[in-house]
Amino acid sequence: MALTEKYGELIQKTFAKYPDKRSAVMPMLHLAQQEYGWVSPEGIQEVAEICEMDPTQVKSIAGFYTMYSESPKGKYWLQVCTDLACALGGADKFYEDLKAELGVEDGGTTEDGLFTVEHVMCLAACDKAPMLQCNFHFEEKLDMEKMRKRLAEWRAEAAKAK
């Protein structure tokens, strides 16, 4: 039970928000994903025990919501909005170029394990197309020149972390 040991206080604080432990299942899944990089079977089991739920129910919730990743992702999880409003602002072309730049297909991860690239639906930043979220932080008004710079920064950050 790594989560309860490491985040006992946070978990209790989360429980205090709701009259029902089950309401904490989404925050706990976010926590498990942050801790393990994805919602692993161990993470599901732990969340189920914390929220006193059946692991099958927890798994169904993890599967329903797109932000819970049920497989490991690259260190930088790039989700490009290619929905209508962004597409009118050139998002489809940007997404094709980004995939070509990284040499991956839709949903793929680079060989060095750094970048996973996928397209997603509207992220509420339509006036700043093309845009993406990297590990849930927004990067806006992008073009490939700006993007190459960001990719280089992330690569340097990852090399430093090693």
């Binding site: 928000k17 089950r22 904490a24 989404m26 919730i61 797109t66």
Partner: peptide
């Protein structure tokens, strides 16, 4: 006053789906 973060589901903007989601269920 508390915040509650969803996890990527348009349908949770529908009011009863939002309530389901807050209760820890599929939206």
């Amino acid at each position: 006053v508390y915040t509650h973060l969803g996890a990527g589901a348009y349908i949770c903007g529908e009011e009863t789906a939002l309530l389901e989601s807050l209760e820890g269920k599929m939206g």
